[in-house]
């Protein structure tokens, strides 16, 4: 163990650091704040996926039929698929600007576990993409004549499911961030992995329309999120390390 020597260096280094334990919390908090500040200054990046969501939903009645009964039957799936695609849209930029300006390199060199720092960035993505999509979905649900009683479930399932989508998607974003034309490839990698979340998310809404089983769907969505929370940060960290050295 390097204890003795590292102590020596630490002391010599002007005792400038606080407790080592609080260091990680400070770093994660600072990263969260930094990313939120950035997006607050570039509101377009936050609004565009929402506009895209509304646009895609508008296409369906035009492309299929304005018949409210028909729309009501396909509304849960449509809303979920459109929300999923909108969340996908903003994924490519998750690490892109950090990669381009060199701050990703610095993030990797921070004396903190990279999975936690990556998780902070994913949390920001969910806060500014998944959550707004979930809040907006009920409004679009009205436009698709989504049956009453399923609106709350739509928002809850999307809020819960989109957290998994952000986590899984971040793996793909981290893998492709070093590639100049990573956007389409990213969708190709990530969409198959989204299918379980889509099944249980859209299933939850459908179940709440039919009247039972929605809780089971939500429970599974929660389990998927727990699993993603446990495993995805490590995959994201590994992928970032690969991309930065490509």
């Amino acid at each position: 163990m390097p204890r003795g020597e590292s102590r020596l260096i630490d002391d010599a280094r002007l005792a400038s650091r606080g407790e080592p334990r609080t260091g990680l919390a400070v770093a994660v908090w600072a990263t969260l704040k930094r990313d939120l500040t950035q997006l607050a200054r570039r509101r377009g990046d936050v609004l565009n996926p929402l506009v895209f969501f509304a646009l895609v939903i508008t296409l369906f009645p035009i492309g299929i039929s304005p018949d409210p009964e028909l729309l009501a039957t396909i509304a849960p799936g449509l809303l979920w698929v459109a929300a999923l695609l909108s969340a996908l849209l903003s994924l490519d930029s998750l690490f892109r600007s950090d990669f381009d300006d060199g701050s990703l390199e610095q993030l990797l060199l921070a004396p903190h576990p990279l999975p936690m720092l990556g998780l902070a960035k994913v949390a920001v993505h969910w806060l500014l993409t998944g959550l707004p999509l979930a809040l907006m979905a009920p409004v679009l649900g009205i436009m698709l004549s989504l049956p009453a009683g399923s609106y709350l479930m739509l928002a809850v399932s999307l809020a819960l499911g989109s957290a998994s989508l952000s986590l899984i998607g971040a793996i793909g974003a981290a893998l492709t961030v070093g590639l100049s034309r990573g956007g389409v490839l990213l969708s190709l990698l990530v969409l198959p992995l989204y299918i379980p979340v889509l099944i249980f998310g859209a299933g939850a809404v459908q179940a709440s329309i039919l009247g039972d089983g929605a809780a089971a769907h939500l429970a599974i969505l929660g389990a998927l999120l727990a699993l993603a929370l446990m495993l995805a940060p490590w995959a994201i960290a590994a992928a970032l390390r690969i991309s930065i050295n490509g």
Binding site: A30, T31, T37, G102, Q106, A110, P111, H112
Partner: peptide, 22 residues
């Protein structure tokens, strides 16, 4: 690459590095 965020001010950039590096 300098690792400087163009949307943030120099002060905000440094504050982040300060928090990151302890």
């Amino acid at each position: 690459a300098p690792g400087v965020k163009v949307t943030l001010t120099p002060l905000e950039n440094l504050r982040w590095y300060q928090a990151l590096g302890g």
